[in-house]
């Protein structure tokens, strides 16, 4: 699966299908601090993502 991180870095992961939440935690990301989209559509943290999915992770916290 292809992960686009909040800083726009792209990661290609060899990963079995897994819930978004698990993938985020493996990347050291707190699921409460991000929004995740698949094909530009927002998905919940228990959605199972698959090998051919492109996932964008958007960080929500901003100061000021």
């Amino acid at each position: 699966m292809k992960l686009i991180l909040p800083d726009h870095e792209v990661l290609i992961l060899e990963h079995d299908p897994a819930p978004v939440e698990q993938v985020l935690l493996e990347q050291g990301i707190n699921p409460l601090e991000v929004i995740v989209t698949r094909n530009k559509k927002m998905i919940s943290e228990d959605t199972v993502i698959e090998a051919d999915d492109e996932i964008r992770i958007i960080r929500i916290a901003h100061g000021g």
């Binding site: 929004i35 927002m42 958007i58 929500i60 100061g63 000021g64």
Partner: peptide, 28 residues
Amino acid sequence: ISEKEIAMYLMLNDAWNELPECPYTHHA
């Protein structure tokens, strides 16, 4: 309403902008 819910509300209503972070927050 949590911060994440606010961000989701904006995104779902086409009002989300990725804006820069205040440069002084790293002192906070």
